[in-house]
Amino acid sequence: MPEITVDARGMACPGPISALTRAYRNAQNGDLIIVLATDPGFEPDVKAWVERTKNELVELAKVDGNVIKAVIKVTAKK
């Protein structure tokens, strides 16, 4: 299963979601997109993004202190 890593640490809203959206455009069904972000607003934003795009949020956790790690499985590409 291919993985796409997006390092959005240090970006302010809407930077992390914009970076996720750009990565999603190049992804295929079954790919994992791993996003690392430090913006505290990213957590609710990524939940809303996954719900809106009908993809799967595999993991959402804080790692290394203030870094938010989101793992999204691409399931809704046509």
Rank of each mutant, 00 (worst) to 15 (best):
L57S: 05
V58F: 04
V74A: 00
I33V: 15
G30S: 09
L32Y: 15
V71P: 08
A23H: 07
D39G: 12
W49R: 02
Y24E: 09
S18Q: 13
I68C: 03
A70N: 08
P14W: 03
G65T: 13
P14N: 02
A27Q: 12
R22T: 15
G10L: 02
P14K: 00
K62W: 10
R22L: 14
D7W: 10
I72Q: 02
P44L: 02
G65N: 12
D39S: 12
D7F: 11
V50T: 01
I33K: 08
L36W: 04
G30P: 11
A19S: 15
I34Y: 05
G15D: 09
M1A: 12
G30Y: 09
A12R: 13
V67Q: 07
A37W: 07
I68N: 06
P40W: 01
T75K: 13
D31K: 10
M1P: 12
E43S: 11
V6P: 11
P16G: 08
D45A: 13
M1Q: 08
P16H: 12
A27P: 11
V35G: 08
S18I: 12
R25I: 15
I17Y: 01
I72G: 01
C13D: 13
A19Y: 10
K47D: 04
T38N: 06
K47V: 08
K69Q: 13
A8F: 06
W49Q: 06
K78F: 02
A70V: 09
E56R: 15
C13F: 15
G10H: 02
A27R: 10
A48R: 14
L20N: 06
T21A: 12
E43H: 02
A19T: 14
L20C: 04
K62A: 08
E3L: 03
G10M: 00
R52P: 00
I17W: 02
G65Y: 12
N55S: 14
D31M: 08
S18G: 07
K47M: 09
T75N: 05
L20V: 13
E51G: 08
I33Q: 09
I68K: 07
N55R: 05
P40G: 01
I17M: 06
A8H: 07
V50W: 00
L36I: 00
A27C: 13
L32A: 14
A76M: 02
G15V: 12
K69H: 04
R25Y: 14
E59D: 10
G30Q: 10
L57N: 04
N66G: 15
A23P: 09
R9D: 04
A70M: 07
A23N: 08
N29G: 06
